[in-house]
Design a protein around this nucleic acid. Structure first.
Lengths: 118, 118
DNA sequence: CTGGATCCGGAAAGATACTG
DNA sequence: CAGTATCTTTCCGGATCCAG
């Protein structure tokens, strides 16, 4: 009754780790949402994602590209323009994003409610 | 066609941020899964969550407790035993965990497939 | 002006040892 | 067993700088 759960736990956790390795950090999912909503340029993303810095944005975009979630396209200018597009594979993350968003909404309401006590 | 999406994006991202603020990092969800599977003690969690250090585990447990996702109970000894239990509110995170786990499984298969090319 | 790179400082994560 | 102290390393954010 105790040994089975030990190995089982690793089993249950492993796919979670695989997903978190890609999606981890507070920015990647936000970037994907921004891309889906229709923002494609670097400065634009910087503007619609409050608090992100250009340095972090650049790094996250590279990570996302490396994981084949987005695509970077350079339109040789002048002026040189760079466009970021979401790839089909990133769409498969929609359930994850939806689940998080739903929970976030519920949590906000809960916080508001108990904030009356504080 | 451009202005509406600008405000809309912030709207879409905000609940996501709320959720990520709580669930952030790569450990919290793993800890919740381990607790659900039936591991309640500090060392036990350390063992079933590969790679976590005692310092980080201690900090994450405090965070989870503060957010009312888990409960810490001290059984005065000797020896002193501490038990961590998942609270009902943490169960509401199940859809998030399931979505991530499902995606993680699919992603692993995809990686395996393209690993043939590498 | 856009798309970044680089430097710097503080914060957080990791590894390990040690204490009650 | 349940953590903390300590040290090292990595990450994060801001500001600045640069090329086109």
């Amino acid at each position: 009754m105790d040994t089975p759960t030990l190995g089982y736990c690793i089993e249950a956790i492993r796919p979670l780790r695989d997903a978190l390795d890609i999606v981890n950090g507070k920015w990647k999912l936000q970037i994907l949402v921004a891309l889906r909503v229709g923002h494609h340029r670097f400065r634009e993303l910087e503007r619609v994602i409050p608090g992100i810095s250009s340095k972090v944005l650049a790094k996250e975009l590279k990570d996302l590209e490396q994981h084949q979630l987005i695509q970077r396209t350079v339109h040789e200018g002048p002026p040189v323009l760079v466009k970021y597009d979401i790839l089909p594979y990133a769409i498969t993350l929609d359930p994850v994003i939806s689940a998080l968003r739903d929970w976030g909404e519920g949590h906000r309401k809960k916080i508001m409610g108990s904030a009356v006590e504080a």
